[in-house]
C-alpha cells in the first residue's frame, strides 16, 4: 500500500471533521474522494499533508523505493519521514506528525481548491522554485547564481510543456486566466516529483469547455502518478476514477469501484441524490452543492455539528474494503 490511514480523526472543539477514517491507496491508483460540502474532504487532505495534526489515528506512507530519478532529501531535509523515504528502504514511514514540508519531501504533493500560487513571480519561476525544493542542498547554496542550476530550469520547462503553459513561461502568474491558473496549480504540485498527488477540486470555477482540458491533464498525470482527487463534477469522477471513496460527515461511508458506489443506497441518500440511478442525472452537473462558489465549504465542517451523533452508519461496498 502506498498510503494507509488508521482510524484517522480530526476534531475542532466539539466538531469531528474527520471521524475514524480507515483508508488505503495502492500505488498507481486514481481514487476520487466525493461527498457533500462539509464532509471533511479537504480536512482529510490537510491531515495527509501535515497542515493539520490528527487528533487521533495514524498515517503511513510507503513510497516506491526505486525512485532513483529523484535527487531529493539531502542532509537538510527535515525529519525522519523524509530521510527514510530517500534512503529507499521501501519500508513504510509514519507521517502522522510530519509537517507540510516533510510530507512534501517524502513525496506527497497537493494542489489547492482555492488557487494558491506565487502571484507576482513568472509562471516558470513558480514551477522552478517548486522543483528546487526537492533538490535537497541546492536551496542552501548562497553563493551561486540561480541560473547556474540548469536542471531546475529544464525540469520546470518540461512540466510547463506537459501542462500546456510553455508559451506563458514568462507571464506574471497573477495575469493568467483562471483556467491556466488551475493547470499551473497541478504543475507546481508536479514539480516536486510526487509519489502521491492530491488534487483538491482542480476544476473548481473552470468553464465547461475548460473542464475537458483539465480532465485530460489529470488523466495524463494519473498515467504515471498515484492520484487522489476531490471533485464535485460527477461525470468527471465516474469517468476517470479507478475507485471512489465517499465521505459523509467525516466518515467514510463507501469505498469501491465507480459502478458499485453509484448503486450504493447510503451514498445515494447522502450525496448523489438520484445521480445515475435511472439515468436521469447524466447531465454532468455538479451535485452536493456549488462546486465553485463555496470555497471554504469543506474546511470547517461547521454545519455538521451532529457528525459524531450520526456515528456507526457505514456501508462497505464491493470487495475492495479492507
Amino acid at each position: 500500500m502506498l498510503l494507509e490511514t488508521e482510524g484517522l480523526t480530526k476534531r475542532f472543539g466539539g466538531i469531528t471533521a474527520v471521524d475514524g477514517v480507515d483508508f488505503a491507496l495502492e500505488a498507481g491508483e486514481l481514487c476520487s474522494i466525493i461527498g457533500p460540502n462539509g464532509a471533511g474532504k479537504t480536512t482529510f487532505f490537510n491531515l495527509l499533508t501535515g497542515v493539520l495534526e490528527p487528533s487521533d489515528g495514524r498515517i503511513r506512507f510507503d513510497p516506491p523505493a526505486d525512485d532513483g530519478a529523484r535527487a531529493e532529501a539531502g542532509p537538510t531535509a527535515a525529519g525522519g519521514a523524509a530521510s527514510a523515504a530517500a534512503n529507499g528502504t521501501g519500508s513504510a514511514v509514519d507521517i502522522t506528525a510530519a509537517s507540510p514540508d516533510e510530507t512534501a519531501l517524502a513525496g506527497i504533493h497537493r494542489s489547492y481548491q482555492i488557487t494558491n500560487l506565487f502571484p507576482t513571480l513568472s509562471v516558470l519561476e513558480n514551477v522552478r522554485v517548486a522543483a528546487q525544493a526537492s533538490r535537497g542542498n541546492d536551496s542552501w547554496k548562497l553563493w551561486r547564481n540561480v541560473t547556474e542550476f540548469e536542471d531546475h530550469y529544464a525540469e520546470a520547462t518540461a512540466i510547463l510543456e506537459r501542462i500546456g503553459l510553455a508559451a506563458e513561461a514568462e507571464t506574471v502568474t497573477e495575469n493568467l486566466s483562471h483556467g491556466e491558473k488551475r493547470s499551473l496549480e497541478i504543475g507546481v504540485a508536479l514539480a516536486g516529483d510526487p509519489d502521491l498527488l492530491l488534487l483538491d477540486e482542480p476544476t473548481a470555477g473552470v468553464s465547461s469547455e475548460g473542464v475537458d482540458e483539465v480532465v485530460a491533464l489529470i488523466e495524463d498525470v494519473a498515467a504515471d502518478h498515484s492520484v487522489m482527487l476531490i471533485e464535485h463534477n460527477m461525470e468527471v469522477v465516474m469517468d476517470i476514477s479507478d475507485r471512489i471513496a465517499v465521505l459523509h460527515r467525516g466518515e467514510l461511508i463507501a469505498d469501491g469501484p465507480p459502478e458499485d458506489v453509484r448503486g450504493d443506497e447510503a451514498v445515494q441518500e447522502a450525496y448523489l441524490g438520484g445521480y445515475g440511478r435511472e439515468g436521469s442525472a447524466g447531465d454532468g452537473s455538479a451535485v452536493g452543492g456549488d462546486a465553485d462558489g463555496d470555497a471554504d465549504g469543506d474546511a470547517g465542517a461547521d454545519r455538521d455539528g451532529d457528525a459524531a451523533a450520526d456515528g456507526g452508519r457505514r456501508a462497505s461496498v464491493g470487495g475492495d474494503t479492507r
Partner: peptide, 25 residues
C-alpha cells in the same frame, strides 16, 4: 540571486505554498 534568495521570495509571495512544495520555511 542564489537559490536561497529565490526561496526567500517564495516565502514572501506565499509562505503556505512554499511549505507545501517542501521548504522548511
Amino acid at each position: 540571486h542564489s537559490p536561497f534568495g529565490r526561496v526567500m521570495i517564495a516565502i514572501r509571495e506565499n509562505e503556505e505554498r512554499a511549505r507545501a512544495v517542501g521548504y522548511p520555511t
